[in-house]
């Protein structure tokens, strides 16, 4: 069966929604609320936004991540299994050509890292990556 572009987009969107519903319900809802706050309730689709994170992190205290968001004004990063899900909000200035940033974050346990980008045209994009954490980074 040949899929039209519209159909394949719809399937992609429902797959993302299904991913969002699975995972860690207690914290995921808090993260969803924060994402809604950032997007103003707008739907975040997939796009050129990319989030690079290791599949397995031995030490949750320093997990290297990389965001690349061509055409984005700002990117918010969330970790849905942390006691406080927000990680950072990056705003790109006029002298930033690549809209890419690397940093190191703390992850309390195995969870999803979510990046939401606000594009220049006002739309939103979302990228998600699951990181398996061996030793948590909350000093508990």
């Amino acid at each position: 069966m040949q899929l039209t572009r519209r159909q394949s987009l719809a399937i992609g969107a429902s797959a993302i929604a299904a991913l969002g519903l699975s995972g860690l319900p207690a914290f995921a809802s808090a993260t969803d609320d924060l994402i809604n706050e950032f997007t103003g309730g707008a739907e975040a689709g997939a796009g050129e936004l990319s989030l690079t994170a290791p599949e397995i992190a031995e030490n949750g205290n320093t997990v290297p991540i990389e965001i690349s968001a061509p055409g984005a004004v700002a990117v918010a990063i969330f970790a849905d299994g942390n006691p406080t899900p927000p990680v950072a909000t990056v705003t790109f200035g006029p002298l930033n050509p690549t809209h890419a940033v690397s940093t190191r974050i703390r992850l309390a346990k195995t969870q999803n890292v979510v990046a939401v980008a606000q594009m220049e045209d006002g739309s939103f994009q979302m990228a998600k990556s699951e990181v398996k954490v061996t030793i948590g980074g909350c000093g508990g």
Partner: peptide
Amino acid sequence: VDFNGQNVIDVKLEPAISTNPYFQFDAT
């Protein structure tokens, strides 16, 4: 980070950023 008064990057950090905050990015 600014260059001659023009902004390059502006990051709001939360407690989930690791000890000794590290950032790598590009600038024109």
